[in-house]
Design a protein around this nucleic acid. Structure first.
Lengths: 109, 109
DNA sequence: GAGATTGTCAAGTGAATACTTCAGTATTCG
DNA sequence: CGAATACTGAAGTATTCACTTGACAATCTC
C-alpha cells in the first residue's frame, strides 16, 4: 500500500466542507452528484474536493459508466491516528519523567 | 475547561512549520525566541503561529518578565483524537453490519 | 541611565485555496 | 438517433494565509 502523507491528510481535514463530505459518506457510499446535492456547492467543486480526499487516502472512488461512486477509506485517518499516538506517547513519557523528578524533590525536602 | 474547536485544531496542525514547533516543544518548554532560532523565520512569524496554536489549545504560553515560555498542551490533540474515534467507530459499525449482511447472503446461498 | 535582549503591533506582499462559470466528453434512456 | 445525466477540464476571481519589514514597548544587564 502506498504511503500516506500526513501533511496531505491534515490539509484535507482542515476544510469544513471536506469534513462534511466525509461525515456524509460515513453513512455509506454515494455518487459524487448526490454528495454535492445538500452542500450549496457545484459538482465541479465537489470533484476538486474529491481529488484532495483521494490523495490523502480518506476516500476511495471508482467510476462505473458515467457515475463516480465515493466511499470512506480508513488509511488516511489511521495514519493520522498513528501520528498523534507517536507524539502523545513521547510527551507523556517526558511528563512522567518530570513527575518523577518532582516526587524525588519532595522526598529530598 | 473551555471547549476545543476541531476546525481550529485541524487548521493549526495543517501547517508544517507549526507541526515543527510542536515537535520541538515535545522535548520540553522553550522561550519563543529559542523556538524561532532553528526555523528560518522571524520572531514575529513565530508569534503569529503561537497565537494559532494557543487558540487551538495545542500549546500553552506564559509570559514572565520579557520572555514568553511555550509548552505543549494536551487538550488540542485529545480533542482531535476523540473526533477521530467518533468517526472510526461509526464507520466500523457500518462495515460490521455490511459484513453481517454478506455472511447472511452466503448462508442463504 | 545606556544599551542590549525579547517580544508585540500595524500594515503590506505574494502565493495558495475554495469557489465559480463555461465549454466540453462519455454514458444512459426514450 | 437525440436528449438528458454525470462528470471533467480550463480559466478566472476573491479571500485567506504565511510571512516580511519597520516602529515601538517592556525588561534585564552593565
Amino acid at each position: 500500500m502506498p504511503k500516506v502523507n500526513i501533511d496531505r491528510v491534515l490539509h484535507a481535514l482542515a476544510d469544513p466542507t471536506r469534513r462534511a463530505m466525509l461525515d456524509r459518506l460515513g453513512a455509506g457510499p454515494l455518487p459524487a452528484s448526490r454528495l454535492a446535492a445538500p452542500l450549496a456547492i457545484t459538482l465541479t467543486a465537489v470533484g476538486q474536493h474529491l481529488r484532495v480526499l483521494e490523495a490523502s487516502r480518506l476516500v476511495r472512488t471508482e467510476k462505473v459508466g458515467r457515475v463516480r461512486t465515493c466511499r470512506i477509506e480508513t488509511a488516511g485517518l489511521s495514519a493520522l491516528e498513528q501520528w498523534i499516538g507517536d507524539r502523545r506517547s513521547l510527551w507523556e513519557r517526558r511528563l512522567d519523567r518530570l513527575g518523577a523528578v518532582l516526587a524525588e524533590d519532595d522526598k529530598g525536602e
